[in-house]
Amino acid sequence: MTSTRKKQIVTLLKGIETGDEDAVSVVNPEKYIQHNPETHEGGEGLAALFKRLSKTSPRVNIVRVFSDHDYVFAHTEYDFGSQRIGFEVFRFEGEQTVEHWDNIQPRRSPNSAGLSMVDGAVEVSDLAKTESNRTIVKSFVNEILIERQLDKLPHYINGEHYTEHNPNMGAGFASLVSALSDTTPTGSLKIQYNQCHRILAEGNFVLSVCEGFSGGIHSSFYDLFRVSEDQLVEHWDTAEAIVPKSEWKNNNGKF
């Protein structure tokens, strides 16, 4: 079931390239709940979106794909005339997906360490540690990202064995501390995590879905971590501004 669902989602996302309406057959249009506020609900809405996007000669690459019970989540790169990096999350009931969330941002140049937003490890391992790794990331998100207990960072991260893919950050511990401590001219934090909505995991990879503010703008944060020997050793992310509710094309909410 797990491998089949992953293949179905890869087929669905690759359908963006061709505009093939059959690619959305994995979607149950009678139950489908769309959380992208800029997309209409249902299989019909996706088919129309794919057909429109296909006219731009898009390119879709699924870099990583994971499964967590009824969820499949993927790390993706898109070229719709401009390059973007995204995370896609689907919830299944039986053989079809019935709910979708995503978080997409423009692709940025490699960071000061020369690392892109998508390169790095892709293979899933340590399946027996899925739940313990989920717990580690949940604690990290709560204690470090939300509560800002930065004195606890060494418990989660060994600076000598940490690889950072955020385009605005460099390698190592100091860059992470600086990013989490940076403030605006008015004294507020530039990046503020307020609430964690979901933690998804498969083996050594864990994705957190959070809400907060970036530069004072209401935003969603998706953070993918690779965990090894009970510490976070690699990190990828996307941040996306949440459009005002007056501009939503559905009423399901971003989260």
Rank of each mutant, 00 (worst) to 15 (best):
Met1Lys: 02
Thr4Trp: 01
Lys6Ile: 09
Leu13Asp: 01
Glu17Gln: 11
Asp22Ser: 07
Ala23Cys: 09
Val24Met: 06
Ser25Lys: 04
Pro29Arg: 00
Gln34Asp: 04
His40Pro: 10
Glu41Asn: 15
Gly43Ala: 06
Lys51Trp: 11
Arg52Asn: 14
Thr56Ala: 15
Ile62Phe: 05
Asp68Glu: 11
Phe73Tyr: 11
Phe90Asn: 03
Phe90Ser: 02
Gln96Asn: 07
His100Asn: 13
Asp102Trp: 06
Asn103Ser: 14
Pro106Ala: 07
Arg107Gln: 13
Arg108Asn: 12
Ser109Glu: 14
Asn111Trp: 00
Ser112His: 03
Leu115Pro: 00
Ser116Tyr: 00
Glu123Pro: 01
Glu123Ser: 07
Asp126Pro: 03
Glu131Asn: 12
Ser132Asp: 11
Ser139Met: 00
Leu145Glu: 03
Leu150Ala: 03
Asp151Pro: 05
Asp151Ile: 06
Asn158Ala: 14
His161Gln: 15
Tyr162Val: 07
Thr163Lys: 01
His165Trp: 08
Asn166Thr: 06
Gly172Pro: 14
Phe173Glu: 15
Ser175Met: 15
Ser178Ile: 01
Thr184Ala: 09
Thr186Cys: 06
Gly187His: 08
Asn194Met: 05
Gln195Lys: 14
His197Pro: 13
Gly203Asp: 10
Asn204Ser: 13
Ser214Tyr: 02
Ser228Gln: 13
Ile242Trp: 03
Asn252Gln: 14
Gly253Met: 10
Gly253Phe: 06
